[in-house]
Design a protein around this nucleic acid. Structure first.
Length: 259
DNA sequence: ATGGCTTAGTTCCTAAGA
């Protein structure tokens, strides 16, 4: 199996972020990139620009909101599944799963869930259960699997600049944390947590209140590894500098390196 | 501070994000 660098990157609008994304692909040359928050319909996804940058792509778009994609350097990802079963009336584009070079990759955009309590928070928890059901099936396949995405969960107190500021936020509620903990307990490895066990690593900084300048961020973009993928874990990190560039997303690209 | 910004769409205001 070849070395593989896999990135998750919530772009907050692929149209607005296209120059940043193309620049990132050229500079970092990742093997696989899972994108979230395309905010683009399938028809307006910039397939041409992605191909010109040297990447094959699969996308699951939605006009205005949500939307996920999987890019692969020099090859076309092979689609395995789009969307999660269990709630047929759910129209949100938040899950896409593909195979790249013998590794199963999922691009995940978990619902934010604010305000809580309320129907949006209930939807978040239901969606989490549907994801966990899919994750259990994937583990049973005994393949290398990477579940990469914006989970909208601050899993531990040391995953945020301020527990107090986030205390009433959906990202940090006990129910959100419990759902994440139960998912991990299936047998998944949180790759950034493994690399930085004492926390203090952020993947998101709000646009408001000078959050970037104050380094007031938190960690919500996660790459979860199945046991066969975890055996190949070399390193994990956040390409933090991209958050500081012109017209940046509020998330930074977050990556894992597999041997 | 149910919001200091940013994005997209029914665009010159509103919804959503986290």
């Amino acid at each position: 199996m070849k070395p593989l660098r896999i990135v998750t990157y919530n772009v907050n609008g692929i149209k607005a972020r296209l120059p940043r994304l193309v620049e990132y692909l050229a500079e970092a040359k990742p093997d696989v990139v899972c994108l979230q928050e395309l905010k683009s319909s399938d028809e307006t996804f910039p397939e041409r620009d992605i191909r010109d940058a040297g990447y094959g792509a699969l996308w699951h778009g939605q006009k205005g909101f949500n939307g996920v994609a999987i890019l692969a350097r020099g090859v076309d990802p092979v689609e395995r599944q789009r969307g999660l079963s269990g709630e047929p009336e759910d129209e949100h584009s938040r899950y896409l799963e593909a195979e790249v070079d013998g590794t199963v990759i999922a691009s995940i955009y978990l619902p934010n869930g604010n305000p809580q309590p309320g129907p949006k928070f209930d939807y978040k928890l239901r969606w989490f259960e549907r994801l966990s059901a899919r994750a259990r099936d994937l583990l049973a396949e005994e393949q290398p699997v990477v579940l990469a995405g914006d989970y909208n969960v601050i899993a531990n107190d040391d995953d945020t600049y301020s527990v107090k500021a986030m205390a009433s936020d959906a990202l940090m509620q006990p129910e959100s944390r419990e759902a994440y903990r139960l998912l991990l307990a299936q047998g998944w490895t949180d790759s950034l947590r493994t690399r930085f066990p004492s926390g203090g690593v952020w993947t998101f900084w709000d646009y408001q209140a000078g959050a970037w300048q104050r380094d007031a961020g938190f960690r919500i973009d996660h790459l979860l590894l199945s046991p066969m993928a975890a055996d190949r874990l070399v390193d994990a990190g956040v390409d933090k500098a991209y958050r500081g560039r012109e017209k940046a997303s509020d998330h930074a690209p977050t990556w894992v390196q597999l041997r």
